[in-house]
Design a protein around this nucleic acid. Structure first.
Length: 306
DNA sequence: GCGACCATGCGTACAGCATA
DNA sequence: TATGCTGTACGCATGGTCGC
């Protein structure tokens, strides 16, 4: 029988057997609501197949989320071996290396609250895991189970039922080429500490020496082209742009030879104004800078993108 | 409908540089 | 050395998305 690994270990855990689990609950708060259904699938990574699966309703008096999960509370009260199913679930957990859920931050809070047993396995969250880029999946963003199923050509039968969602997730994982790497990178870790200002400042000092120039200073700067329609011009962006994202606007300005900074100063030459501009607009007006809207910016950029 | 998480944007504190 | 300017990075607010 395998020993459940704790997250404090520094070695990556073995990832051969997954306990894919899902819950249906009567609401969002573990303090106020109850778990009405548990589903779990034991999945072999090397064989890409389901080893065993369990599902059970748990008795509740009421289900405010019935519109979502379509589980009548009366059904949960019908005689059925839910205690024995929970015992079997615990045996399955003992055979697993890691617990896998779609939205670990939600599911994890319910385990250890009676009648659900505690799960001491490491967790992997499939909605925040770095899935390979493919149509329908936006890199760097939380991904829904529906999008994952679509991207992997897996049909969703009975959504918002625990075991159905577990088996959909199992079929998605089975179709994942580099599943082992995905699982490793999807392990739920404590949030990384932000670097304190002192260490950042010393890093910057080291990087900036012997001399600092506009082109080389600052982590957010890319090197502007030495020539271009916006050469020797310094831009600041304010407000929400509609034609493109702020990052894309910065890229295009820099590609046209301009520089982009985050705050208005006397060195700033142009302010690009989107919807709901902030106080930067006031400061730019006070300094007599050139104010551009998005259309005007596009006109300035046009020679560069042509 | 509510809660959690993430991306985006604003305002500001502060470190580094230039100048007197 | 003192002072002012500049730009970076952090904290916070807001909106969007997805979970149930």
């Amino acid at each position: 029988m395998k020993q459940a690994l704790l997250m404090t270990t520094t070695q990556p855990p073995s990832l051969e057997t997954l306990l894919i689990l899902d819950l249906e609950t009567t609401g969002l708060s573990p303090e106020k609501h109850r778990c009405i259904e548990l589903g779990a699938v034991l999945f072999s990574v090397s064989l890409r197949t389901i080893l065993s699966q369990v599902s059970t309703l748990l008795p509740v008096d009421r289900n405010p989320a019935q519109r979502i999960n379509r589980i009548p509370p009366k059904a949960s009260q019908r005689p059925q071996p839910w205690q024995q199913t929970l015992e079997l679930f615990q045996v399955m957990a003992q055979h697993a290396d890691v617990a896998v859920a779609h939205n670990v931050s939600f599911d994890r809070r319910w385990f250890g609250r009676p009648p659900l047993p505690a799960v001491t396995l490491p967790w992997i969250c499939t909605c925040t895991a770095p899935w390979p880029s493919q149509p329908g999946l936006r890199p760097g963003r939380r991904v829904s189970l529906k999008d994952l199923a679509r991207a992997h050509d897996v049909q969703i039968g009975d959504a918002h039922r625990a075991l159905a969602d577990c088996t959909v997730l199992a079929r998605i994982l089975a179709r994942c080429d580099d599943l082992e790497a995905l699982l490793l990178s999807g392990l739920v870790q404590p949030r990384p500490q932000r670097q304190d200002k002192t260490s950042l400042a010393s890093l910057r000092r080291a990087a900036d020496k012997p001399g600092r120039t506009l082109e080389s200073s600052g982590a957010n700067h890319t090197t502007p082209s030495p020539a271009g329609p916006l050469a020797s011009k310094t831009f600041v962006l304010t407000g929400t742009l509609s034609s493109f994202s702020r990052a894309e606007a910065e890229k295009r300005i820099e590609a046209a030879g301009g520089a982009v900074t985050s705050s208005v100063s006397r060195k700033t030459t142009h302010l690009v104004v989107g919807a709901n501009p902030g106080s930067k607009l006031d400061k730019a007006c006070a300094l007599g800078l050139v104010i551009l809207d998005e259309a005007a910016l596009l006109q300035h950029l046009e020679p560069a993108s042509a």
